[in-house]
Amino acid sequence: MPSKSIKLLFPPISPAADGTLYEQIVSGVKRAIGDGKMKPGEALPSFRQLAEEMLVSVITVKRAYDELEREGIIFRRQGLGTFVAEGGGDRSRELKIEHARTLLKTAAREAAEAGLKPPDVRRLFLETLNEQP
């Protein structure tokens, strides 16, 4: 079991945040791994333990872990628990880049539908970047 407090390791789950509850857990775990707060080989809390900490149903956590396992970010060892995969951090970052690319494609399509030309889109993107804190 991880010795550090789970409470502050992952962001709180809220219906007011983006995404469904299980998606929030997926992105919270990815962020903790991507930021290096959890290292390869390190144990994740059990479903039931995390459910209790995050105040969500066990099935929600299980679903999030299933998805993280499918993406190769964590792995399960029967009877031992769930662990951060070797290269889980890189994998987590790659997936984020992939996701960002998809979102940018959507943005480009929406802008084109609104009649913006490529130079306008570029300017819009740079403006948006500069607004980021």
């Binding site: 039931r48 333990q49 459910a51 209790e52 105040l55 066990v58």
Partner: peptide, 8 residues
């Protein structure tokens, strides 16, 4: 919190 503790 108690209910989630129970099903742990």
């Amino acid at each position: 919190v108690e209910l989630l503790g129970i099903v742990r």
